[in-house]
Nucleic acid binder design. Structure first.
Lengths: 196, 196
DNA sequence: ATAAAAACATACTAATTAGTATTTTTTTGG
DNA sequence: CCAAAAAAATACTAATTAGTATGTTTTTAT
């Protein structure tokens, strides 16, 4: 029971790539098995339906990535404002898992699958809340340590920052250029400055 | 040549409703002609392909709506900061054309069709730039009239605000609740305050 | 009123879709 | 090594898809 796990993971990874670039609905099972060199029998041995595979992608591919690229960077450094800014800079400008022309995978999934698929909705909420929780904690710590004003509403700021992130990812997709990321980052910096 | 125009418009309007709620790719021509009570012959008399119809929806349905609901409210009032805030409040909380569970039509289209369809990309850029241009002008006027600091970069602020809008629309979709809109609006107000 | 063009209707096609039924191969524990 | 279970391969189905070919009806201009 080792090769099987490898096959499963291979399907999830290749399928994710296809879905990230083409969209979920327009990526067919036939597309997936063609690029993975796996047969239909193998695919349906590992996943009962296409949607089950989609949910597995979020749980087994996106969630670990979230932990590494979105959560951990927030926990580094003393000043939460620079932590947030730096993590955003890293995500938008440096991260090579995420491409400007394809936007944010979680945002894409949300746009495409919510509100019509309750299973997707559930795991996407979990994913999002995980990030939000961490950012809120970071901000609260900043308030305790004097980096951020006491009257700042951490949850509100988190929502505002995350919205900006999702939005600018969509803008990047539209413009197919990281230039918009740079403009956004400058303004994000200004905004974060006003919180101290 | 009057009835024909009505048929065409009817197709566009019904098709828009379906696409707004279900997504473009998952709305079939058969869906559209079933709900419009129009036959396939009539549909393909008015539109060469599905994509031509999609582009027509953006040009003939979304663009006029943009002018009415996004552009005009920005031109009302003296203070650009309250104009921007009020127009956002109106869009998110009052507008009955836009539903929280379905997000922003332009953002949905961008997410789903860019970067794979150049025609969609073009008209969506036009749509977006139209709004951006107006908001930038509004901010520049505010600088001249002393409502906004001279060192503020109008284009940057526009991009930041628009990103937040697109992002919170996606959040609303995920949460299926206008609560997130209210949090967002409070923080938007705070942010706009810092520009004066 | 009537011919021509515009608008619409009907019946089809070929490709693609998710999913299944059945068989074969591979892996595993004893 | 070997039976049983796991994993994978093959060949199919029924539904749906965008689009077409070929009509018929309705408008329009004269």
């Amino acid at each position: 029971m080792k090769k099987a796990a490898a096959t499963r993971l291979s399907i999830l990874q290749k399928a994710f790539e296809l879905i990230y670039t083409k969209g979920y609905q327009t990526t067919s099972i036939d597309d997936i098995i063609a690029t993975t060199q796996v047969t239909k029998g193998a695919f349906y041995y590992h996943f009962k339906t296409k949607d089950e595979m989609g949910v597995a992608i979020i749980n087994e591919i996106l969630k670990p990535t979230l932990s590494d690229s979105f959560i951990r960077p927030l926990q580094k450094g003393q000043n939460p404002l620079t932590s947030i800014y730096n993590s955003m800079y890293e995500l938008l400008m440096k991260n090579e898992f995420l491409k400007v022309e394809y936007g944010c995978p979680a945002s894409n999934f949300t746009q495409e699958m919510t509100p019509w698929n309750a299973d997707f909705n559930k795991v996407l909420k979990e994913l999002t809340h995980q990030w939000a929780k961490e950012m809120t904690t970071t901000i609260e710590n900043g308030k305790k340590n004097g980096f951020i004003r006491k009257d700042i509403d951490a949850k509100q700021v988190t929502l505002f920052v995350m919205s900006g992130y999702w939005g600018i990812r969509n803008f990047g997709k539209l413009e197919n250029s990281k230039k918009v990321y740079l403009s956004y980052l400058k303004q994000l910096k200004n905004y974060l400055e006003t919180l101290k």
